[in-house]
Protein backbone atom coordinates (compact mmCIF):
# COMPACT_ATOMS: atom_id res chain seq x y z
CA UNK A 1 0.00 0.00 0.00
CA UNK A 2 1.29 3.45 -0.94
CA UNK A 3 0.08 6.75 0.39
CA UNK A 4 -0.41 9.72 -1.89
CA UNK A 5 -2.19 12.37 0.15
CA UNK A 6 -0.55 15.74 0.70
CA UNK A 7 -1.61 15.80 4.33
CA UNK A 8 0.50 14.07 6.96
CA UNK A 9 -2.32 14.24 9.51
CA UNK A 10 -5.97 14.79 8.86
CA UNK A 11 -8.32 14.52 11.82
CA UNK A 12 -11.89 15.64 12.22
CA UNK A 13 -14.16 15.66 15.23
CA UNK A 14 -11.84 13.65 17.48
CA UNK A 15 -13.47 12.77 20.80
CA UNK A 16 -12.13 10.95 23.83
CA UNK A 17 -14.03 10.49 27.06
CA UNK A 18 -12.87 8.91 30.31
CA UNK A 19 -16.04 8.12 32.24
CA UNK A 20 -17.88 11.43 32.71
CA UNK A 21 -14.88 13.48 31.71
CA UNK A 22 -14.50 14.54 28.09
CA UNK A 23 -10.77 14.97 27.57
CA UNK A 24 -10.97 15.75 23.86
CA UNK A 25 -14.19 17.23 22.55
CA UNK A 26 -14.25 17.37 18.77
CA UNK A 27 -10.79 18.45 17.63
CA UNK A 28 -9.96 18.95 13.94
CA UNK A 29 -6.35 18.99 12.77
CA UNK A 30 -4.75 19.23 9.35
CA UNK A 31 -0.98 18.98 9.18
CA UNK A 32 0.81 19.31 5.87
CA UNK A 33 3.84 17.25 4.92
CA UNK A 34 7.15 18.69 6.04
CA UNK A 35 5.48 21.03 8.48
CA UNK A 36 6.18 21.47 12.19
CA UNK A 37 2.83 21.76 13.85
CA UNK A 38 2.58 22.84 17.47
CA UNK A 39 -0.30 21.95 19.75
CA UNK A 40 -0.24 24.46 22.56
CA UNK A 41 -2.23 24.29 25.77
CA UNK A 42 -2.05 24.07 29.55
CA UNK A 43 -1.91 20.84 31.57
CA UNK A 44 -5.03 18.78 31.10
CA UNK A 45 -6.12 20.58 27.92
CA UNK A 46 -6.20 17.31 25.98
CA UNK A 47 -2.92 17.64 24.05
CA UNK A 48 -1.43 14.32 25.04
CA UNK A 49 -4.76 12.52 24.68
CA UNK A 50 -5.13 13.85 21.13
CA UNK A 51 -1.60 12.77 20.27
CA UNK A 52 -2.12 9.32 21.81
CA UNK A 53 -5.24 8.79 19.71
CA UNK A 54 -3.36 9.73 16.54
CA UNK A 55 -0.48 7.40 17.54
CA UNK A 56 -2.86 4.42 18.10
CA UNK A 57 -2.08 4.45 21.83
CA UNK A 58 -5.68 5.25 22.79
CA UNK A 59 -8.86 4.19 21.00
CA UNK A 60 -10.69 7.01 19.19
CA UNK A 61 -14.19 7.33 20.70
CA UNK A 62 -15.64 9.42 17.88
CA UNK A 63 -14.40 11.22 14.80
CA UNK A 64 -11.93 10.18 12.14
CA UNK A 65 -8.18 10.41 11.81
CA UNK A 66 -5.86 9.65 8.91
CA UNK A 67 -2.07 9.55 8.88
CA UNK A 68 -0.77 9.99 5.30
CA UNK A 69 -4.22 8.90 4.19
CA UNK A 70 -4.24 5.72 6.32
CA UNK A 71 -7.23 5.42 8.64
CA UNK A 72 -6.01 5.20 12.24
CA UNK A 73 -8.99 3.21 13.54
CA UNK A 74 -9.07 0.70 10.69
CA UNK A 75 -5.35 0.17 10.13
CA UNK A 76 -3.43 0.79 13.37
CA UNK A 77 -0.60 -1.55 12.37
CA UNK A 78 0.06 0.48 9.21
CA UNK A 79 -0.11 3.77 11.08
CA UNK A 80 2.50 2.47 13.54
CA UNK A 81 4.85 1.98 10.58
CA UNK A 82 4.56 5.68 9.69
CA UNK A 83 4.88 7.30 13.09
CA UNK A 84 7.63 7.75 15.67
CA UNK A 85 6.44 8.70 19.14
CA UNK A 86 8.48 10.40 21.84
CA UNK A 87 6.46 10.54 25.02
CA UNK A 88 6.25 13.00 27.84
CA UNK A 89 8.03 10.51 30.06
CA UNK A 90 10.96 8.78 28.44
CA UNK A 91 9.72 5.49 27.06
CA UNK A 92 12.94 3.53 27.29
CA UNK A 93 13.85 0.60 29.51
CA UNK A 94 15.42 1.72 32.78
CA UNK A 95 17.33 -1.52 33.37
CA UNK A 96 18.95 -1.65 29.95
CA UNK A 97 21.86 0.40 28.63
CA UNK A 98 21.41 2.97 25.88
CA UNK A 99 22.80 0.56 23.28
CA UNK A 100 20.69 -2.34 24.53
CA UNK A 101 17.57 -0.18 24.31
CA UNK A 102 18.23 0.93 20.73
CA UNK A 103 19.23 -2.56 19.61
CA UNK A 104 16.05 -3.94 21.22
CA UNK A 105 13.83 -1.48 19.33
CA UNK A 106 15.82 -1.98 16.13
CA UNK A 107 15.40 -5.75 16.34
CA UNK A 108 11.68 -5.34 17.01
CA UNK A 109 11.48 -3.24 13.86
CA UNK A 110 12.91 -6.12 11.88
CA UNK A 111 16.56 -5.10 11.60
CA UNK A 112 19.25 -7.75 11.75
CA UNK A 113 21.39 -7.72 14.89
CA UNK A 114 24.25 -6.17 12.93
CA UNK A 115 22.09 -3.47 11.34
CA UNK A 116 20.48 -2.65 14.70
CA UNK A 117 23.90 -2.26 16.35
CA UNK A 118 25.12 -0.06 13.51
CA UNK A 119 22.02 2.14 13.59
CA UNK A 120 22.26 2.39 17.36
CA UNK A 121 25.90 3.48 17.21
CA UNK A 122 25.11 6.06 14.54
CA UNK A 123 22.18 7.53 16.49
CA UNK A 124 24.04 7.61 19.81
CA UNK A 125 26.83 9.51 18.11
CA UNK A 126 24.55 12.05 16.47
CA UNK A 127 22.75 12.62 19.77
CA UNK A 128 26.00 12.99 21.71
CA UNK A 129 25.32 9.92 23.82
CA UNK A 130 28.14 7.63 22.73
CA UNK A 131 30.08 7.89 25.99
CA UNK A 132 26.94 6.80 27.85
CA UNK A 133 26.24 3.90 25.49
CA UNK A 134 27.06 1.21 28.03
CA UNK A 135 25.37 2.84 31.01
CA UNK A 136 21.98 1.78 32.36
CA UNK A 137 19.27 4.37 31.72
CA UNK A 138 18.46 4.59 35.42
CA UNK A 139 21.78 6.46 35.75
CA UNK A 140 20.91 8.95 32.96
CA UNK A 141 19.99 12.60 33.47
CA UNK A 142 16.58 13.85 32.33
CA UNK A 143 17.99 15.50 29.22
CA UNK A 144 19.93 12.37 28.21
CA UNK A 145 16.80 10.25 28.59
CA UNK A 146 14.79 12.56 26.35
CA UNK A 147 17.51 12.51 23.71
CA UNK A 148 17.75 8.73 23.83
CA UNK A 149 13.98 8.54 23.62
CA UNK A 150 14.01 10.73 20.53
CA UNK A 151 16.82 8.62 19.05
CA UNK A 152 14.69 5.50 19.61
CA UNK A 153 11.80 7.13 17.75
CA UNK A 154 14.04 7.76 14.74
CA UNK A 155 15.24 4.16 14.33
CA UNK A 156 12.40 3.31 11.97
CA UNK A 157 12.97 6.50 9.94
CA UNK A 158 9.36 7.57 10.44
CA UNK A 159 8.02 10.24 8.06
CA UNK A 160 5.92 11.65 10.90
CA UNK A 161 7.26 12.28 14.40
CA UNK A 162 5.13 12.99 17.45
CA UNK A 163 6.90 14.89 20.23
CA UNK A 164 4.86 15.07 23.40
CA UNK A 165 6.15 17.96 25.53
CA UNK A 166 9.77 17.23 24.59
CA UNK A 167 11.28 19.77 26.99
CA UNK A 168 8.90 19.81 29.96
CA UNK A 169 10.98 19.52 33.12
CA UNK A 170 14.32 20.16 31.42
CA UNK A 171 16.72 22.89 32.52
CA UNK A 172 17.18 25.81 30.08
CA UNK A 173 20.50 24.57 28.68
CA UNK A 174 19.25 21.04 27.96
CA UNK A 175 16.10 22.58 26.56
CA UNK A 176 18.17 24.56 24.07
CA UNK A 177 20.02 21.38 23.04
CA UNK A 178 16.71 19.59 22.51
CA UNK A 179 15.47 22.45 20.36
CA UNK A 180 18.61 22.22 18.21
CA UNK A 181 18.04 18.50 17.77
CA UNK A 182 14.43 19.07 16.74
CA UNK A 183 15.50 21.78 14.27
CA UNK A 184 17.96 19.40 12.62
CA UNK A 185 15.20 16.84 12.34
CA UNK A 186 12.96 19.35 10.64
CA UNK A 187 15.72 20.45 8.28
CA UNK A 188 15.83 16.82 7.15
CA UNK A 189 12.24 17.08 5.96
CA UNK A 190 10.35 15.20 8.66
CA UNK A 191 6.83 16.21 9.54
CA UNK A 192 6.63 16.94 13.25
CA UNK A 193 3.65 17.22 15.57
CA UNK A 194 4.78 18.84 18.79
CA UNK A 195 2.78 19.43 21.95
CA UNK A 196 3.93 22.03 24.42
CA UNK A 197 2.88 24.20 27.31
CA UNK A 198 5.31 26.93 26.33
CA UNK A 199 4.47 29.61 23.79
CA UNK A 200 8.15 30.37 23.23
CA UNK A 201 8.79 26.71 22.38
CA UNK A 202 6.00 26.68 19.81
CA UNK A 203 7.26 30.07 18.66
CA UNK A 204 10.83 28.75 18.20
CA UNK A 205 9.92 25.52 16.45
CA UNK A 206 6.46 25.43 14.95
CA UNK A 207 5.28 26.69 11.56
CA UNK A 208 1.67 26.67 12.69
CA UNK A 209 0.12 26.35 16.12
CA UNK A 210 -3.24 25.11 17.36
CA UNK A 211 -4.25 26.33 20.80
CA UNK A 212 -6.21 23.73 22.74
CA UNK A 213 -8.20 24.30 25.89
CA UNK A 214 -10.48 21.87 27.75
CA UNK A 215 -10.48 19.48 24.83
CA UNK A 216 -11.45 22.10 22.25
CA UNK A 217 -9.35 23.93 19.67
CA UNK A 218 -9.73 27.63 20.43
CA UNK A 219 -7.43 29.08 17.79
CA UNK A 220 -5.05 28.15 15.03
CA UNK A 221 -2.46 30.11 13.13
CA UNK A 222 1.19 31.07 12.99
CA UNK A 223 2.80 32.23 16.21
CA UNK A 224 2.83 35.80 14.82
CA UNK A 225 -0.91 35.67 14.30
CA UNK A 226 -1.49 34.33 17.80
CA UNK A 227 0.70 36.92 19.42
CA UNK A 228 -0.83 39.75 17.41
CA UNK A 229 -4.19 38.72 18.79
CA UNK A 230 -3.03 39.87 22.22
CA UNK A 231 -0.79 42.71 21.04
CA UNK A 232 2.87 42.28 20.20
CA UNK A 233 3.86 43.06 23.74
CA UNK A 234 2.18 43.86 27.01
CA UNK A 235 2.73 46.66 29.50
CA UNK A 236 2.29 45.33 33.02
CA UNK A 237 1.35 48.00 35.55
CA UNK A 238 0.73 47.90 39.30
CA UNK A 239 -1.23 50.80 40.77
CA UNK A 240 -0.41 52.29 44.17
CA UNK A 241 -4.13 52.58 44.89
CA UNK A 242 -6.14 49.49 43.95
CA UNK A 243 -9.42 51.39 43.92
CA UNK A 244 -8.26 53.38 40.88
CA UNK A 245 -8.18 50.30 38.62
CA UNK A 246 -11.40 51.22 36.79
CA UNK A 247 -10.30 54.82 36.27
CA UNK A 248 -6.93 53.63 34.99
CA UNK A 249 -8.64 51.24 32.58
CA UNK A 250 -10.67 54.10 31.13
CA UNK A 251 -7.53 56.20 30.66
CA UNK A 252 -5.69 53.34 28.96
CA UNK A 253 -8.63 52.67 26.65
CA UNK A 254 -8.63 56.33 25.61
CA UNK A 255 -4.90 56.22 24.80
CA UNK A 256 -4.65 52.83 23.05
CA UNK A 257 -8.21 52.28 21.85
CA UNK A 258 -8.20 48.82 23.48
CA UNK A 259 -9.45 47.76 26.87
CA UNK A 260 -6.68 46.44 29.16
CA UNK A 261 -6.78 43.16 31.08
CA UNK A 262 -7.36 43.84 34.76
CA UNK A 263 -6.44 42.01 37.94
CA UNK A 264 -8.29 44.26 40.42
CA UNK A 265 -7.28 42.21 43.52
CA UNK A 266 -3.63 43.07 42.93
CA UNK A 267 -4.23 46.51 41.44
CA UNK A 268 -2.83 45.24 38.15
CA UNK A 269 -3.49 46.65 34.70
CA UNK A 270 -2.06 44.73 31.72
CA UNK A 271 -2.10 46.73 28.52
CA UNK A 272 -1.74 44.96 25.17
CA UNK A 273 0.42 47.08 22.87
CA UNK A 274 0.53 46.89 19.11
CA UNK A 275 3.81 48.76 19.37
CA UNK A 276 6.09 48.91 22.43
CA UNK A 277 6.56 52.67 21.90
CA UNK A 278 2.96 53.19 22.98
CA UNK A 279 4.01 52.31 26.54
CA UNK A 280 5.22 55.88 27.01
CA UNK A 281 1.85 57.29 25.88
CA UNK A 282 0.03 55.09 28.40
CA UNK A 283 2.33 56.17 31.23
CA UNK A 284 1.95 59.87 30.32
CA UNK A 285 -1.84 59.44 30.18
CA UNK A 286 -1.85 57.95 33.68
CA UNK A 287 0.40 60.75 35.05
CA UNK A 288 -2.02 63.36 33.67
CA UNK A 289 -4.95 61.56 35.29
CA UNK A 290 -3.09 61.62 38.62
CA UNK A 291 -2.85 57.84 38.90
CA UNK A 292 0.30 56.64 40.66
CA UNK A 293 1.98 53.33 39.79
CA UNK A 294 4.40 51.14 41.75
CA UNK A 295 5.84 49.03 38.91
CA UNK A 296 5.79 49.02 35.12
CA UNK A 297 7.37 46.61 32.67
CA UNK A 298 6.94 45.69 29.03
CA UNK A 299 6.89 42.00 28.11
CA UNK A 300 6.26 39.74 25.14
CA UNK A 301 2.89 38.03 25.50
CA UNK A 302 2.97 34.85 27.53
CA UNK A 303 0.95 31.73 26.93
CA UNK A 304 -1.18 32.85 29.85
CA UNK A 305 -2.09 36.06 28.06
CA UNK A 306 -2.79 34.32 24.77
CA UNK A 307 -5.05 32.05 26.74
CA UNK A 308 -6.73 34.81 28.61
CA UNK A 309 -7.35 36.57 25.35
CA UNK A 310 -8.63 33.50 23.54
CA UNK A 311 -10.63 31.81 26.25
CA UNK A 312 -11.31 34.41 28.90
CA UNK A 313 -9.53 32.38 31.57
CA UNK A 314 -5.92 31.76 32.52
CA UNK A 315 -3.92 28.55 32.23
CA UNK A 316 -3.32 27.74 35.87
CA UNK A 317 -6.72 28.18 37.48
CA UNK A 318 -9.37 27.72 34.83
CA UNK A 319 -12.14 28.22 37.40
CA UNK A 320 -11.06 31.71 38.46
CA UNK A 321 -11.90 33.25 35.13
CA UNK A 322 -11.83 37.00 34.81
CA UNK A 323 -15.30 38.44 35.28
CA UNK A 324 -17.04 39.26 31.99
CA UNK A 325 -17.17 43.03 32.43
CA UNK A 326 -13.40 43.46 32.47
CA UNK A 327 -12.33 40.67 30.12
CA UNK A 328 -10.88 41.46 26.73
CA UNK A 329 -12.80 38.73 24.98
CA UNK A 330 -14.96 41.04 22.95
CA UNK A 331 -11.90 42.53 21.29
CA UNK A 332 -10.34 39.29 20.16
CA UNK A 333 -12.05 37.14 17.61
CA UNK A 334 -10.54 33.72 17.35
CA UNK A 335 -11.72 33.56 13.76
CA UNK A 336 -9.24 36.25 12.88
CA UNK A 337 -6.33 33.99 13.59
CA UNK A 338 -7.92 30.72 12.56
Amino acid sequence: MTTTTELAVSASGLVKTFGDFTAVDGIDLEIRRGEVFGVLGPNGAGKTTTLKMLATLLPIDAGKAEIFGVDVKAHPHQVRQLVGVTGQYASVDENLTATENLVLFGRLLGMSGKAARAASEELLESFGLQEAAKRQISKFSGGMRRRLDLAASLLSRPPLIFLDEPTTGLDPRTRGQMWDTIRTLVAGGSTVLLTTQYLDEADQLADRIAVIDRGVKVAEGTSEQLKTSVGNSTLHLRLSDKTQVATAAAVVEKVTGDRPVLTPEAGGVNVPLADADRAADVLIGLRHAGISITTANVQQPTLDEVFLALTGHGTDSPESAVSPDNSVNSDIHTEEVA
Binding site: T3, A8, R33, F68, L82, E122, L123, S126, L154, R157, P158, P159, L160, T184, L185, A187, G188, G189, S190, T191
Partner: peptide, 8 residues
Protein backbone atom coordinates in the same frame (compact mmCIF):
# COMPACT_ATOMS: atom_id res chain seq x y z
CA UNK B 1 21.88 11.17 8.84
CA UNK B 2 18.46 12.48 9.70
CA UNK B 3 17.54 13.40 6.15
CA UNK B 4 17.46 9.74 5.27
CA UNK B 5 14.84 9.28 7.96
CA UNK B 6 11.98 11.03 6.25
CA UNK B 7 10.49 8.55 3.87
CA UNK B 8 6.76 8.93 3.54
Amino acid sequence: LISTYAVA
